[in-house]
Amino acid sequence: MVEDQAFKEYLHRRINQWFRAHARDLPWRADDRTGWSVMVSEFMLQQTPVVRVLPIWEQWMQRWPTPADLAAADTAEVIRAWGRLGYPRRALRLHAAATAIVEEHGGEVPEDYETLLALPGVGSYTAAAITVFAFGHRATVIDTNIRRVFARAVSGKALPAKSLTAAETRLANELMPADDREAVTWNAATMELGALICTAKSPKCEACPVQEKCAWIAAGRPEPEYQPKGQEWAGTDRQLRGAIMAVLRESTGPVHSEVLLSGGKAAQRYRAEAVPALEKLVKLNSPAEQLERCLTSLATDGLIRREGDLISL
């Protein structure tokens, strides 16, 4: 517990002031934001940096400015428009959520946390983020950036636990400002501080608004209790699934299964399109059993359609 009320007020004042002066100008933070524009951003920002999300988000909002617009779209269009954001199942979940919003909520994104939580693809973090950032309601938002700020500034640790703990949740709730408007700013401010200043690998402590009372700095900046490992990519099913999806996104029609199962080597035989993604798929030189496994998993996830020997989005 943080029993020092003066310390909590210091954190609130300094971090919120820093945010008002240094927050990035992002379209889903604009005064004309809607529940839907924030919801789309939150789905896209899961495990994906802002710089990659921005252009895709802008394209989506032009094409599907309301839940009803997206709900009416074919899932193949939706997956293709998702582009290279990664984790394309998020696109299908967002489409399913849009459909539920149209069918159950009159086409309007609900404001209530519990109602949001009942939508397809919406977990506790996303529900809290939407109700706070879109509608200005009080809720505790906890993401990796926020957890890292609290771990360092309050708990004196280099990194938070590998996964969210009950103690971290209690701390986040305890640190929330009493004033609802300040609490909304606090959620955004601590997240922004973690994203821009209190980063995982190279924190910019000299630019931190609370460096003078940071528990981690006071403790001598101890090393983390574990070394975070990035996700493996080369040779993984995730890489191969992405390569297959890229071919299907670039193709104007269905692709013969042998083209994909041969790593693109049968392209000439079936007169497959000479799309750049097909060349990249060939270069992976993936084993046949891995190709089949990835095609099967993509079909199971609803990301591709297999009709006989033809495969499409």
Rank of each mutant, 00 (worst) to 15 (best):
Q5Y: 10
F7W: 14
K8H: 04
H12I: 02
I15G: 00
W18A: 03
R20M: 13
A21P: 04
H22L: 07
A23C: 13
R24D: 12
D25I: 12
L26F: 07
A30S: 15
D32S: 15
V38G: 00
M39H: 09
M39L: 15
V40K: 05
S41E: 04
M44K: 09
L45C: 11
L45M: 12
Q46T: 10
Q47E: 03
P49I: 12
P49Q: 15
P49T: 12
V53P: 11
W60P: 05
W60C: 09
M61L: 15
M61N: 03
W64I: 06
P65M: 11
P65R: 04
P65Y: 08
P67F: 11
P67S: 08
A72K: 11
A72G: 02
T75R: 13
T75D: 12
A76C: 00
V78M: 10
I79M: 10
R80E: 11
W82E: 01
G86E: 11
P88N: 09
R93P: 01
L94S: 12
A97F: 09
T99I: 07
I101M: 05
E103A: 13
E103S: 08
E104M: 07
H105N: 10
G106E: 05
G107D: 08
P110A: 07
E111W: 05
L116Y: 00
G121N: 06
G121W: 05
V122G: 03
Y125M: 01
A128E: 07
T131I: 04
F133Q: 02
A134S: 06
F135I: 09
R138F: 00
T140D: 09
V141N: 06
D143L: 06
T144Y: 00
R147A: 13
A151Q: 00
A153F: 03
L159Q: 04
P160Y: 01
K162N: 00
A167W: 08
A172P: 07
M176D: 10
A178N: 12
D179H: 08
D180F: 03
A189V: 04
M191L: 10
I197D: 02
T199C: 03
K201M: 07
S202Q: 14
C205G: 01
C205S: 01
E206A: 14
E206K: 11
P209G: 07
V210Q: 01
A218I: 02
A219K: 04
R221S: 13
R221T: 06
P224H: 09
Y226H: 02
E232V: 11
A234I: 13
G235C: 13
T236Y: 07
R238T: 03
Q239G: 03
Q239A: 14
R241K: 12
G242V: 09
V247G: 04
L248P: 05
R249E: 11
T252M: 11
G253V: 00
P254A: 12
P254D: 10
P254G: 10
V255I: 14
S257F: 04
S257A: 15
L261S: 08
Q268A: 15
R269M: 14
Y270Q: 08
Y270R: 08
E273I: 09
K280S: 14
L281V: 13
L291K: 07
L295V: 08
T296L: 12
S297C: 09
A299C: 10
T300C: 03
I304P: 03
R306F: 05
E307S: 13
D309H: 11
I311V: 15
L313P: 01
